[in-house]
Amino acid sequence: MSLYPAFARPRDLGQAADIMGGLSTGAMIIAGGQEVMPSVNYGALMPEVYIDVGQISALKGIAEEDDGIHIGSSTVHRDVQDSEVIQSKIPLLSYAAAQIGGGMQVHNRGTIGGNIVSMHPLYDILPSLLALGAEFDVLRGDGETRVALADLMRDASHGLGSESLLVRIHLKPMTPGAGWSYEKLKITAGGYGSANAAAIVTLDGDKITSLRVVVGAVSALPIDISDALGGCRGQAWSDHLAEEIEEKASAEISEPLSDHQGDGDWRRAMAGVMARRAVEAAVEKAG
């Protein structure tokens, strides 16, 4: 074994599967490098082999198909933000991708797939993807399997596993007329959030007919609190409902993060505030 890492540039998914299958440990898939490289520079990660998936055309691009919208995993955040299909059909994702920290430089190179597989608690698009019911095509060995983000997150290992490659993200267009919002509590323009929430709401008149709410950056993984807020259905927006959402959202955070972004009790309280603001903004936009 060389002192320095080796490099592999698979041209298609078949070659990628061969390379991943032939290596035991120590291989690291790299695309934009915006997650991998800081960890390498910091000394937290020492790959023995880099597998550069940037040449694989099957991982690129955004397409609208009969069964929904497909986003290749190596699509960069900037292209998710700028895509007309995503802006018109899934505006929540377009907006959330623009809130990713690190500035335009990171938006230009960081990929949606890399952001997802890192499963970082403070990153910006998982809450929206969970609220949108995202599903993934994952390459393992010779075959692709479809897995829902919600199922993936229930897995104790919290990830795809080193032998897997995230190929594309499947999303359904949002219901026309649905209101949406992504709220992020942050200290600096390009920084991480201390709490965030994504919300999607549909209304009949002024009554809420459905709502999806996910809170993030307050626990190890985003938490879908839609069921806990089920009692909001049939109600119109009011100060009383706002208080109820804030209380119930905070109550769902059983193990809050406590780090340099803020201590646990405060994060739990802010989760409620973000959920309230997100639902209020979504209700305003709906109709």
């Binding site: 790299i30 991998v36 490289m37 520079n41 550069d52 940037g54 040449q55 430089q105 990171v106 190179r109």
Partner: peptide
Amino acid sequence: RVAKSCITLAATLG
């Protein structure tokens, strides 16, 4: 497009 060169692996640039 602007990028941060410290977190760009040169070998991926072709």
